[in-house]
């Protein structure tokens, strides 16, 4: 545990979504980092991790693309790389695992990249990174969240497969709960925290995403949660952007705000909701923000 230490520097791999559909995730991360004495050093000239499309079609490609990023990180003298997107995290961590445990693939990839691997890189998810900083989060949480009840949603890739992640419990994880508790919110008990949201099928099998999102949102609402906390841009998009379709299909018009965990931490620090990108959500966050007296955002209804 690095709790209580001085400034922490980690390599930063934003991934493609954080520069587009999940801009607010990056905005909120950059907003809370200074308060947490966290220095995010972006990997220069990083490329896409390859995501589902690479690993469903070409195993080598799915290792080589993130491996290039790991080589760049080593050249920047970084020991640890933080990937806020759970899917990117999974690809980077899987590549690191393959490099360390599959000699054949490792040597194939070295020749493909025309570069050799430096020191091993620790790949961190946001759950790992922030759970190392719970003391700081607790000390910076100046806004009382008034026992705000939140459902922590891990999705499928944040803590598994266990041999890749080697962090938290793959079936009964608690890291996100420890973070939101440090921020002053109250995690609810619910049973869909690890169910898949439909991931990369948002475009190609929208109906599947709606079906899966329905059961996740229903369970979160039934548990009494006032907000759903996520740690992945895909989960966010499937549960926020697609929420109107989901609610419509369920005949259930109760909106459920979906927040990145960094946004919740930012709110607990008293940061402006706009700085945290809450204005970019599709589900109107205003009623929720009002319950914690967190200021206002301008919200435009979904067309």
């Amino acid at each position: 545990m690095r709790n209580g230490e001085a400034a922490m520097k980690v390599g930063y791999f934003p991934g493609c979504s954080l520069h587009a559909t999940a801009r607010e995730y990056e905005e909120s991360l950059k907003a809370i980092a200074p308060a947490l004495d966290l220095q995010l050093e972006e990997i220069r000239d990083w490329a896409c991790c390859g995501a589902t499309s690479a690993h469903s079609t070409n195993h080598l490609l799915s290792v080589a693309l993130p491996a290039r990023t790991l080589v760049l990180a080593a050249r920047q003298n970084l020991d640890r790389v933080f990937a806020p997107c759970a899917a990117c995290y999974n690809r980077l961590a899987s590549a690191q695992h393959a490099i360390e445990h599959d000699k054949k693939v490792a040597s194939q990839v070295e020749s493909i990249l025309g570069a050799s691997f430096g020191h091993p890189i620790g790949v961190l998810s946001i759950a790992q990174l922030l759970s190392e900083m719970t003391d700081r989060i607790r000390s910076k949480a100046i806004v009382p969240l008034k026992e705000l009840k939140v459902a922590c949603y891990y999705g499928c890739l944040l803590v598994r497969p266990p041999e890749i992640c080697r962090f938290d419990d793959p079936e009964a994880p608690t890291s996100l709960e420890s973070i939101v508790t440090a921020a002053g919110a109250v995690p609810v008990k619910w049973d869909k925290a690890l169910e898949c949201c439909g991931g990369g099928f948002s475009l190609s099998r929208t109906a599947s995403v709606v079906r899966l999102g329905r059961s996740i949102l229903r369970s979160a609402k039934d548990s009494g949660a006032q907000a759903l906390i996520v740690a992945c841009p895909m989960c966010h998009s499937n549960l926020d952007f697609r929420q109107r379709a989901i609610n419509r299909s369920a005949g259930d018009d109760r909106p459920m705000p979906v927040l990145f965990i960094s946004q919740l931490v930012g709110l607990s620090m008293g940061l402006d909701p706009v700085r945290l990108g809450l204005n970019r959500h599709f589900v109107n966050p205003q009623p929720f923000l009002s319950t914690i007296s967190a200021g206002r955002v301008e919200h435009r209804e979904q067309a």
Partner: peptide
Amino acid sequence: RISAFHSAFLDQIRANGRVFEF
């Protein structure tokens, strides 16, 4: 649809190194 998605996705990476969602 699946093949369209994967091809489109990988084409993005091949062309730009990153995925340009639009």
